[in-house]
């Protein structure tokens, strides 16, 4: 197991400011860690690259869903007003997409927004009211002015002692072990 312990969630270290966190993230990435996260009170510009993360796939997911929302929105109107109960309105054609545009658009936007919210939460593994990392009382600062790196025990390079040493060598303070 090489110093691994399933009881341990990971090691948490605090950094002073966004710049330090960004540099520390780069060093952690370069040291070969991949299962780590950088915690901050606000998103930090350039952090995705520093951590070696790929762009969020959310945009593509929502584009895919929106495509069906458009089709669904238009066919709802078409089915309702032209097939199930044909309504003759001033003798206008039944498939008048111009007249169906406002409702189709409104439905698409609403459905896309609902899915954006739900899929964002799902990708983030939320809602998750409790998480091992909340056991650190110092971590409460993350929503105020604290900047943290947490390296998780699932990482192939993780070793309780060595990881602690590493975090301290890149300038981490208040290093603590987070238990599951």
């Amino acid at each position: 197991m090489n110093g691994k312990d399933t009881k341990i969630f990971g090691i948490l270290a605090q950094f002073g400011d966004p710049g330090e966190l960004l540099q520390a993230a780069e060093k952690t990435r370069d040291a070969g860690y991949s299962k780590f996260d950088c915690y901050s009170p606000f998103p930090i510009h350039g952090m995705d690259d520093a951590m070696g993360l790929r762009r969020s796939p959310l945009g593509y997911i929502i584009a895919f869903i929106s495509f069906f929302a458009v089709i669904g929105g238009l066919s709802l109107q078409w089915y309702a007003n032209a097939i199930d109960y044909p309504l003759v309105i001033s003798g206008k054609p039944f498939i008048s997409y111009q007249a169906y545009a406002p409702v189709g658009f409104g439905l698409t936007v609403a459905i896309a927004a609902i899915f954006t919210f739900v899929v964002m939460l799902a990708l983030n593994g939320l809602p998750r009211p409790h998480h091992p990392i909340f056991s650190s009382s110092n971590f409460e600062k993350v929503t105020d002015d604290g900047f943290f790196i947490g390296i998780e025990s699932g990482d192939s390079k993780f070793d309780t002692e060595k990881t602690k040493e590493f975090l301290s060598s890149i300038g981490g303070k208040n290093i603590e072990t987070i238990n599951n």
Binding site: A25, D37, C38, Y39, S40, P41, P43, I44, M47, D48, M51, L53, R55, S56, L58, G59, I62, V109, A112, A113, T116, F117, V119, M120, L121, L123, N124, L126, P127, R128, P129, H130, H131, I133, F134, V142, T143, G150
Partner: peptide, 24 residues
Amino acid sequence: SCGWRGGNRQWKHYEMAYLILAGL
């Protein structure tokens, strides 16, 4: 707050969601 932790792995999706909602 749905158990928000503020990790960059969350911010990444969050910022994208915010951008999409702004676009919508």
